[in-house]
Write a protein that binds this DNA or RNA. Structure first.
Lengths: 255, 255
DNA sequence: CACGGACAAGTTATCAGACAAGTTGAATGG
DNA sequence: CCATTCAACTTGTCTGATAACTTGTCCGTG
């Protein structure tokens, strides 16, 4: 009678939020302790042993928590000397650009009420740029949308979104393209988890500016963004023009 | 006869580069192994035990290395199942904006040969904006420089740098302001370690555009950056205008 | 035969203890 | 006074064990 055979693990991560570990909790508790004791840049943290006793965890867990803070650049560790708060904490940054949020989510978080006008929606084939961004074959079927977002009748954003056709099944004409595209993708099982963005400054292309009466509105931030799901599928390529007079990105930089 | 008394640690981190730990090395080795085995998004990594044996380190060290990768969003850990590659790895990003580098360093890394023209240098007092950015009292003495960087006689960048006067002692007239200001600051013990940057799109202000014949050059990325040392001193406030047609920033974004 | 529960196998998460490596300041000797 | 040694201290790493969680197989029952 043979014993039980070994179990096999399927080769995909779960798509929901991961369980929160003790080390992650301790990381936050360390930050709270720092605030509580009014520690500032350059100040020394309690030792690993002291923190382990303080939080009632093992030293390994404390180390893992501290490692997270070091990786964030918040803490500097020196063997034999201790750990010190780095200067980043003194630089207040809200909503860093490294935190992915869709354009709709961003506008909502900013509390900015906008009117979305769908300028065009087309079933098309992927251009070479889109094919590369979406890891598609050249000429693969896509849906491409062009939308204008206005605030108090003032144009503030123009979005060009390209989605693999298969990701949003059903007739194009029946979909409400003025609402969040990432929400629609998520509803079809394509939850955007990450992206790579390229940010530069430009003026609106003539094809858009003159055609839709948007010329002469100054400088725009152009964000070209490739969006992927947890298992690596490319589900959205966005070219978003943000009016320079209305938008800015914040980021912490560290050597 | 009393024994030796306890030693005390001074309350400041060292200002040089930190020693590289084994865990940091293993992190890079894991990435190399991933590439070697052509693992892609969603694929499962070897177990902690396997990796520990493969690299000849303890399991704790392996865990600390893997924690770094998880923190970067490159790896997703699931208790009882294993670890999986997240989709970020499939998004190629070079020189993310989160990595601090001074403007001079950036241009050098890009291999872009530029001519730097010092348009003005003045001893002045801090404006309210500068005072806030540099954590100075209003009206505190500063040095303010205005420089133009050109590539093949084409203007590509305009820098306004404000430095607390005390950070660069000596007569202003005797200093070569066309070279790297962060290098000069470092030479006086003010090594810039981190910064907080705000990025938007704009046109050149009239005060600069018309006065120096730089108008009509399109859209510019405006980077307003507060730079700090390891012990938290604010030593530089920069307003850098990067020509949109020549520069872009790359960033990975993750939920 | 289908379903539910128990259990073994496997993997990450955490703890405890020990030793290694590096830093610092006091003590000691020249 | 200066240089060297050494103890105390702190982070870095290793080893071994147990806890917590996941998955698939096996077995009993309806």
């Amino acid at each position: 009678m043979a014993g039980r055979t070994a179990r096999a693990v399927s080769a995909s991560p779960a798509l929901g939020p991961a369980r929160r570990t003790r080390a992650q909790e301790v990381r936050d508790q360390v930050l709270a302790l720092v605030a509580e004791r009014c520690l500032g840049p350059g100040d020394r943290l309690p030792t690993e042993v002291e923190l382990s006793e303080h939080f009632g965890v093992g030293r390994s867990t404390t180390r893992e928590a501290l490692k997270l803070l070091e990786q964030d650049g918040l803490v500097i560790a020196e063997q034999g000397r201790g750990r010190f708060l780095s200067p980043i904490g003194s630089l207040a940054v809200e909503r860093p650009v490294t935190r992915y949020e869709s354009v709709s989510e961003m506008l909502e978080t900013m509390g900015m009420s906008v009117t979305t006008t769908v300028l065009s929606v087309e079933e098309s084939t992927a251009s070479p740029v889109e094919a590369e961004a979406l890891a598609l074959d050249a000429g693969a079927p896509v849906v491409r949308t062009l939308r204008l977002r206005s605030h108090d009748d003032e144009p503030i954003m123009v979005n060009i979104n390209t989605i693999p056709r298969a990701c949003l099944p059903g007739p194009v004409a029946y979909r409400d393209w003025s609402s969040s595209i990432t929400a629609a993708l998520a509803a079809h099982g394509h939850y955007v988890l990450s992206s790579a963005a390229r940010i530069t400054a430009t003026e609106l292309p003539d094809a858009i500016g003159t055609r839709y009466g948007l010329a002469g509105l100054g400088a725009w931030l152009l964000v070209q963004e490739r969006c992927v799901t947890a298992d690596g599928r490319r589900v959205l390529y966005a070219e978003d023009f943000h009016r320079g007079s209305a938008f800015a990105f914040q980021v912490l930089r560290h050597r």
